[in-house]
Design a protein around this nucleic acid. Sequence first.
DNA 1: AATGAATGAGTGTTCATTCAT
DNA 2: AATGAATGAACACTCATTCAT
Lengths: 201, 201, 201, 201
Amino acid sequence: MRPAPERRREILDTAAEVFAAQGYDATTVRRIADAAGLLAGSLYYHFDSKESMLDEILRAFLDELWARYDAVLAAVLGPRETLEALVTESFREIDRHRAAVAIYQKESRHLREQPRFGYLAGSQRRFEQAWLRTLERGVAAGVFRTDLDVRLTYRFVRDTVWVAASWYRPGGQHSPEEIARQYLSMVLEGVALRDGHRTYG
Amino acid sequence: MRPAPERRREILDTAAEVFAAQGYDATTVRRIADAAGLLAGSLYYHFDSKESMLDEILRAFLDELWARYDAVLAAVLGPRETLEALVTESFREIDRHRAAVAIYQKESRHLREQPRFGYLAGSQRRFEQAWLRTLERGVAAGVFRTDLDVRLTYRFVRDTVWVAASWYRPGGQHSPEEIARQYLSMVLEGVALRDGHRTYG
Amino acid sequence: MRPAPERRREILDTAAEVFAAQGYDATTVRRIADAAGLLAGSLYYHFDSKESMLDEILRAFLDELWARYDAVLAAVLGPRETLEALVTESFREIDRHRAAVAIYQKESRHLREQPRFGYLAGSQRRFEQAWLRTLERGVAAGVFRTDLDVRLTYRFVRDTVWVAASWYRPGGQHSPEEIARQYLSMVLEGVALRDGHRTYG
Amino acid sequence: MRPAPERRREILDTAAEVFAAQGYDATTVRRIADAAGLLAGSLYYHFDSKESMLDEILRAFLDELWARYDAVLAAVLGPRETLEALVTESFREIDRHRAAVAIYQKESRHLREQPRFGYLAGSQRRFEQAWLRTLERGVAAGVFRTDLDVRLTYRFVRDTVWVAASWYRPGGQHSPEEIARQYLSMVLEGVALRDGHRTYG
DNA sequence: AATGAATGAGTGTTCATTCAT
DNA sequence: AATGAATGAACACTCATTCAT
């Protein structure tokens, strides 16, 4: 009568993969059960509901993400270094929990209207604040350009980072650090070649 | 009071809004009918199925998009100008058909595995070719940097452009052209401030 | 504002064909309308309901059939001659109203439980009486065999005659009279060859 | 209490009764469920669809029927004896699977146009061949009359046998063998009384 | 006479969930 | 821990019918 937490993990990882591949609503509980090697009804020994699987997946992802982000923000770095660290941690998170990030990216917008998933909105607000503050600090410090709309820039950066979860495959050609480096190079220096262009990294 | 095709349009636009807001699978046909002011069964006087509404929405979007893209590609521009024009047309398309773009962005990955939506894969291949060729031309011409992975750059650019459909609101603060300008400025010149930095636009 | 009874007839004949081919329940009102060259809603200018089309088809068939049967029964013939005449009239009716007979054969069993179609049960009772009386008269007169169960014989004969509506095609190889002759020959004389076998007809 | 396949059988038998009584199209899945003592949705735990229930019913009937027919045809009997055996087996089959035969009789004509039920057409062809060959052998051997159209005779015989499923009630007054005997007597010897008439059986 | 658009009840089917074993 | 059978609400869709024009 011990809970066997490993089986839970296994099932949850399977569920995350399926949710990411087909979308939460389009995924049947039976599909998850098939992929996990048991019958649909048996899932309810481990979990309350399909929704609570989703909840657990998203919470685990956000908890881990914020642990890393908070560490970055606690270490008082310059704005450019903060930006680099946040982007790098984001790509590392995609590497570790690709499925969870893809689900978050696809579903969080409409999930956050349900009370149960209100924490998604809270998380997003903190997320936005951290990024905006970093960008603003950079502008104030003369490190980032002054002529760009900070909110627009934030959105571009945020989206590009997370949407990478939809094509990234762990163990592929590029390490998360390499992807982060290339991405940062593009965002910071631009793709246009100019005299005296400084290669990044 | 004969001009009936307008009703189709109305319903289709409504459906697109709902699909975009809640996701295709999570949207019930009753929800669409409610929003359009008729009963669920009555939708079937105008459309074969829920799926064929989705199909029509996506086809209309892609048809219009490709008309614009083809015009850009037919005018033989330099690589930088091509990139600017493609991005600008993309943001204009988001301005015109925000809902359709949001649906495309959210659903096309798993839809394109169904035979009926095979054209999504075809469109995406052409899309990829147009962008890669433009980037490669720019690298060859010494206009774009040589040290960036072209495929990665393509993915970053593609995603950021389309994902904007999820937050863009027509008639808001920024015109699509303004958003395109800011985005291009970021991507081409970078956000980092340097000596002799050239303001874009 | 005259009713144009020809159009009614046309539509009713079309409906009968479709009912006969696909079954009453499996036939949609739209299918009938398509075949008759108008829209589904327009049928209701001519008829109250799908059910009243069926009703009218069956009543017309039974009215005509009983006119002929009554004529046969009124002419006081010998039992063998009566049987021959009833069978012949039945095949003629199939020739004239094949579709109606096929519908009657297929649907009357469960229709007659509905109050509206109670007359089907009444008709069937009269039908049964006419046949049983004829067979019994023949047995009493020493014209038909005494060792056969009269009710069983009745059922065999009744079924075979009507079920012919499902394969008979007007204008085909055999006239209704020829089919009746062959059928009567089989039923009266049997298919087995014996000494002194009398060829029928 | 593991032996579950019985439940399938139970439900299938119930479905067959309802299909036979009301017609396949007029039968709702809820009606079957009511009669079987569960909810409509629960049927889908056991069967893929309403259509696959029908399919299973018809296949089981035809499989059994052909097993018997093949046994008769394999034993090389004279034409008269073959005809007697086929008719007897047919009435026995009606006794065993009355509902299935009634469904077959009522629905097979239009079902066989659907690909899924193509085997009905195949079966009917074999059926026709077996009967025609038997009748022709009898004519050639001087056992059956030469002046009757063999195809017409086949149709009369075929229809009368199968249509009996619509009135036959198992456990009633007559055993299937008794019905077969009476029917064969009528078909072989005729109902007309003649000098030296040979009583059958 | 007929159309076009709609209704509303009902259909087959799906699916998250429950529960005795 | 897991199964097998079932539930019940919801779903996409159908269809006979209505009615203003």
